[in-house]
Each structure stands twice: as C-alpha cells, then as structure tokens.
Design a protein around this nucleic acid. Sequence first.
DNA 1: ACCATGATTGCACAGGCTTTCAAAACCGCG
DNA 2: CGCGGTTTTGAAAGCCTGTGCAATCATGGT
Lengths: 327, 327
Amino acid sequence: MRVTADDVAARAGVSRSAVSRAFTEGASIQPDKRAHIRAVADDLGYRPNLMARSLTGGATGLIAVVVGSLSNPYESWFLDILSQGIRSRGLWPLLVPVSPGQEIEPALDHALAYQVDGAVIAAGSVNRKLAERCTANGAPIVVVGRVLDGGGADSVCCDNRAGMSMIAERLVTTGRRKIAWIGGRADTFSNVERLEGLTAALAGYGMSLCETRRGDYTTDSGMVQALALLTGPDRPDAIACGNDAMAIGAIAAAHRLGLRVPEDVGICGFDDIPAAAWEPFCLTTVANPVSETVHAALDLLTRRIAGETGAPSTIRLPPALRIRQSL
Amino acid sequence: MRVTADDVAARAGVSRSAVSRAFTEGASIQPDKRAHIRAVADDLGYRPNLMARSLTGGATGLIAVVVGSLSNPYESWFLDILSQGIRSRGLWPLLVPVSPGQEIEPALDHALAYQVDGAVIAAGSVNRKLAERCTANGAPIVVVGRVLDGGGADSVCCDNRAGMSMIAERLVTTGRRKIAWIGGRADTFSNVERLEGLTAALAGYGMSLCETRRGDYTTDSGMVQALALLTGPDRPDAIACGNDAMAIGAIAAAHRLGLRVPEDVGICGFDDIPAAAWEPFCLTTVANPVSETVHAALDLLTRRIAGETGAPSTIRLPPALRIRQSL
DNA sequence: ACCATGATTGCACAGGCTTTCAAAACCGCG
DNA sequence: CGCGGTTTTGAAAGCCTGTGCAATCATGGT
C-alpha cells in the first residue's frame, strides 16, 4: 500500500540502491539521474521510510520530551521554546506527557523503544539508575530545571538561589518587614532551592519569613493560600511566591480583599511567564532564562549524541530580576 | 550497542523467536519460559525495537500532532488535553509545531516519513490534495477547529455561529448599543465564522457592529486594538473579541483607561481558556468544548485507522455561554 | 508400549532501507 | 587506440523484529 523505494526504482528503471542514493546527500550519483529519480518519487508520492532507515544503525532524529501538565503556563511556555529549538536542529520532539505524581519510568521506557536519539526531561523524578539505562540504550538524557542528585546525566538549571537573593534584596529595599512565602510541593527541586535561597538571603539581612504556606504551583492554589495569609491574624506586607502562576493568584486575592498592591502588600513570583507582564498583574518577578536553558540543554544533548563522553556537567544559568509594579 | 532480541536469546539460551513471543501477548509459549525470558530481558534492559516491529506492516502507534504557536494559551490548553487523550488510547503524540504563516506541508511530509498512523491537525491550512495524500500514505487525518473546504478529511469543530449568537443575545439583553469587534487574522476559519455569526445574529435584532478591528489572537494585540477603540471618537459600550486572549488584553486596556467593566464597557471573548476565570478578568465568554472535541476527533481518527472508509464526516460541537462579570 | 493430538519451538523469510564491494562505465592522455 | 584512475552502478549483506511452517515435544487414551 505504502509506496517503497522498490516501486520508485522499477518505475524509474534503476536499482533500489540508486533510489537510496538519490535521497542521500553527498552520495555518489549522477546529478541528472538523481533529478529524474526524485521527480519519479515525487510523482509517486514516495518518501524514504525513516523507521527502516534508522534500522540500519542511523539516528532516528527523535527526541523524547518529558513534560508535566501543560495546563501549567510555565510548562507550556517552556515546551513552546523547546519544541522550536528541537525542530530548528533538524530533530523531532516525541511528546511524553506525565501527570504530576505519575511515574516517569514506564513512559520513558516506551519512548526508548522508539529508538529516540535522546531525551529532554523537564518533569518527573529521575534517578541515577534510570539515567544510566537511557544512556546505555543509546539515548543520552539531559535533565532540565533541576540537578540530578547522584550525577549520571547532564543537567541545566536556573540558579534559583541567586534569583531569590535578588528578590530578598528587593524586599528589603522596599521596606518589607513581614514577609510570607507560598511554595509548591515540598519535594520538588525548584521549590526547595527557592525557599532555601530566600531564607538564606533574608538571614543575611537579619530577617526571616514570618509564615510559609504550600500551594501546588497553580493560580488557584496561590489565590487560596494568599487569602488565608491576608485574612490571618498577622497580615504580611509582602508575599513571595514559588512561581508566577501562584503570584498571579495572590494578586487576585489581594484585589478581592480590597488591598492595594504593592502599597498594602507586595507580591512577587518566579519565572517571568508571559502572563506576568499582563497589565492588571505587572508582576515583579525573577526571569527564568528559558531560551538560554533550552539552548544549553540541546547543545549538551547533541554533543552527547555525537558521542562525547566524560563526566556529566551541570550548567547553572543566571536569572534576572524583573521589576514591575507588584513589589 | 543497543541490546537486541538476539542478545537476550543468547543469554537466556533460547531462540530469537522465543524472545519475540515472550513479548507478544497471546503467543504460544510456555509460561515459565516467558517469565524467564522477560527476567533476562529486564536484566539486560531490553525492549523490543518499535521501529523494526512496525516494519513488518504493523502500526507505529505514532500520531502526528500539528499545532500552532504554543505561546497561545488556547493552543497549549488544547494540546494538553489532546496529548492526554492520545496517550490514554495507547498512542504517542509526535509533535509538529508550525509557526503561523508557515507552510504545513513539508513538516507533515516529514512526519509521514515516520510512518505515523494518523494525524491531528489543529493549525495551518490543509487542502483536499494534502488530505488525500496523507490518507493514501496510510495516515488518515482529522482536522480540528475548522471544516475542510473541499472535503477530503474528517473534521471536528465548535459551532462558532451558535456561540456568537448566544453572545449577541447577551449583548442585547444587557442593553448594549454600540458594539465593536476585535477579530483575528482575516483568513482564519474561526475568525470568519465568529465574525459572520455575530453579524448575522445582531442583524436578527436589527443591530450591526459599530466598528471592527483586527488583532492576531494575542493578549497584546487585544490590548492595542481595545485601546484604539476606547480612546476613539465614538467609544463603544461593548467589545466582542475573537478569542479570550484578546479579550483579556481588552480588559487590561479598559482598566488602564479607568473604565469600569462591565458598567462602562462590556467585554467578552471566546474559548473559555483557564485564565478567563481568573479573578481580575472574570471573563464572560463562550466555552469551546475542547474535551469533547478531542474525544470526537480521536474517535474519528481511530476508526479511520481501523480501516473504516466512507465519506468524510464533519462534527459540529455545541459551545456554551459562560456568563461571568465582564459582560 | 504406541499412536493421535495439540502445544512449543526453531528456522527462515519478509519488511524497507543503507552501505560495502566489486564490476562497469567514464575520463583524460600518451 | 590502449591504459591508469576516477566516478557510477547494481547485487547482496545487514539492521531488528514478527510470523508461517514444519519439526519436535509432551500428553493422554487405548
């Protein structure tokens, strides 16, 4: 049913090898013959079967992209840039969506069975053993957004602590005294680093958080936690949030309570997602260098795919403070 | 380098066929032998090569997903639900991102070369010829979010006209007299239908649009166009937007100008993306039945993949008016 | 103990492609 | 026209798996 190289060969009156060569850049074949074959192929609607091609040991050009819930604006923003980056390098993203809490391993295993050339992992937890299995299977991985504990894979990650120390400075500069924190799930890497970073930086100013609460990185949860904070007995004059989505929820909460931002309560986030700049929010936040992260991750990955060995490297990218109006 | 069935066979002391059968459900093989082989395979980290498997004529389990710029919140919301739906049917989404204005054909062609079993096309323009070529190549397609002009492929689409007529009724009910429109690119299907639907429905009430402007479905463009409208000589008392992202921008514009929503100006959108419900917006909008759309599209597609023939069908899903506070 | 029956097993091939290798065609030049 | 050297070319070998087919094995009935 599907038209194969044999069909084209028969129709063009050449051997199957010639057809293969006509589609291989730099292969030894007469230019006019190549043109003829390509014309016939076009006529028949032939395209080399990439599955069969990869069977001979070549690369598939497939990159598994493990990503969390796309309803999270940061996640989809990241995927947008990542998929463009993958395509611009002539590769193709095989999407592996995993729900939070879901095990990443079986999904990744299945993707491996598609002989992906590599994987970018931006969600779920991966341990050293899993990383090594992927590499052993010829599919190096790069972990994004956190650093792999036991080593075993390259990782690219924003310098969360540096980001939070800039936030801390801003909090102090604007004269905040009672600073609360709304974080994400306790066990996530970014949450831990950001909270630690903020605590440490504040300690440098002789200050500490007056209260910490936990959301789940969604706008709704930010709203809920901020409402609780702002209606509590000891209202904070600033709320630092673990990401922008929650900060947006916190701003909504302040508005609902008739509080002015930033006068009555300063609010800040992390990531600088597109929505952070939207007018009603004007969120002061830390810009997560997503483009640079994607670029670095893909560089690392392609180099591994090309066969580079050596100890896994960790790249920390510096974030930038983005001062708008909410703090 | 990659471990193959031969390796497992040698290590387990059986033939390669046995290994194959151990991984084929319902194949004739002794239970304990299967268990042994699977244990060995697990030990070696073996997984059947899906590329090679698909070579024998089987399906690849890959579904090409052609999607537009993921920075558009509707698009990423849709992809979220679609990718979950694809995974839940045991298939895998191969992402084919296309920028607006970019030709879809070469990208889709390349995806076809991966022997995808089918394609869901939610962006770019596809004509009858392209649709037929895909089908002829054994990869039926389903077009989402618009109806294919010349037929040639199944399509699933929200009933834009019905949605806009509900909006029109709401506009009239709330006593709006001067209604403006901010649409998207003139040539997009949804834009045409929504504008036509609104115009027609208003005509039924003896009314017409006082002004129409064009954005590009982004929040920024909605803001820009709404600013122009609201500072113009004849300020409208309602702005209907072609999608939610632009409506959010319009609300931001109203706020910046100190206008109250909905008292001074009513604003509505289309889609009911998650952000539409966020507190500062509380956007009155038309809920695009995304889950139902995904479900219907995947049903159609899997049936075609299973070999069902017959004239392409078009499914129109009814939207629902979601009244919040902006209109 | 022997045969019919059915479950297992291994061999070999198919599937679409790339690539090595040796044969064939071509080139310029004496 | 002959010859060394450089493309071009086609045949065949592989890549990895699933499966039809024939051979083998175990089973149970007599």
